[in-house]
């Protein structure tokens, strides 16, 4: 619609970023928590209105965007309002997973739109990171949901050759990621997404039920870094700042949660692979 000049949009994004910082600050104290969350929602709302008003939409694309936002809200609000208190952690896991998935899909679209141009190595590297880590977060979060729901056993699942498979997935992720960064090829991007999904499964399956909330927090930090990488690739300061905030605070929170339960993060992730136990 292009009603807002780019410079004005940048200033509003800055205001939204400040809202997010104050939201996290509020959420860390009992008295400011609820107000902090509302401030975060306010920042997000003005940012979304701003992108709608400051972007040129081609053809009927605005209708597709508004339709998707409408359907997404219609699905999310009742789910969040009706969920039982005991089932809230797995709902948060699903919300986290779809956020990572969205960032990975955005990365693939960027690669496709860049074809025939020179996006630069920094942009393709950041996009490769977003696709790999975003899809890791997507499948990892979905599996934590099933573990907490009891759909799959909450005991650690160690697939045969789990440790070598994990190393292989990591090597493949780095290898294909470098190839995407160098070539910007969109089909390699799709392969990278598949590697990320596989890595997410290998990472979460060996974790025992009692440790799952800590892994959700870790995947939350992963999605934050994914969004930061998207901001890096798109030169969007709001995505960069919001993603980095969540990546950093989420990492600290993960360590704090593990310490509060007397566990270590590496022990939770790799304990079962070494033949030890992770609290089931």
């Amino acid at each position: 619609m292009n009603l807002l000049p780019a410079a004005v949009a940048e200033v509003i994004y800055l205001a939204a970023a400040v809202c997010f910082i104050l939201a996290l600050k509020g959420l860390s104290s009992p008295r400011g928590a609820r107000r902090g969350n509302l401030l975060g929602a306010l920042g997000a709302a003005i940012a979304v209105v701003t992108v709608l008003l400051s972007t040129d939409f081609r053809g009927a694309n605005l209708a597709f965007v508004l339709g998707s936002v409408g359907i997404g809200s219609a699905v999310a609000v009742p789910a969040a309002r009706r969920v039982k208190m005991t089932e809230m952690p797995q709902l948060v896991a699903i919300f986290n997973g779809v956020g990572g998935g969205a960032a990975a899909v955005v990365g693939v679209i960027e690669l496709a739109e860049w074809m025939g141009t020179e996006p630069g190595a920094v942009a393709t590297t950041a996009t490769a990171f977003a696709i790999l880590v975003g899809s890791t977060s997507l499948l990892g979060s979905i599996l934590t949901y099933f573990k907490l729901q009891g759909t799959i056993t909450s005991r650690p699942i160690v697939v045969p050759f789990a440790a070598p498979l994990m190393v292989a997935a990591l090597v493949a992720g780095v290898g294909v990621g470098v190839a995407v960064a160098l070539t910007g090829n969109v089909w390699l991007g799709v392969v990278l997404m598949a590697v990320g999904l596989a890595f997410g499964a290998l990472l979460v399956l060996p974790v025992g039920g009692a440790d799952v909330p800590i892994v959700i927090s870790l995947l939350n930090a992963f999605t934050g870094l994914t969004v930061a990488a998207s901001g890096w690739a798109m030169s969007n300061t709001l995505l960069l700042v919001a993603g980095t905030l969540v990546g950093a605070s989420g990492s600290i929170l993960t360590i704090a949660m593990a310490t509060a339960m007397g566990r270590s993060v590496t022990g939770i992730l790799f304990g079962a692979l070494k033949g030890g136990s992770t609290a089931g």
Binding site: A23, L27, A44, G99, A102, G224, S230
Partner: peptide, 26 residues
Amino acid sequence: LHTPLMSGANAIHGIILVGAIAVTAH
């Protein structure tokens, strides 16, 4: 406040919506 803070931080990275709208636009 560990769980609400995690949940609030989780909502904040949903701002990838701004990126999704921007790439869909063109």
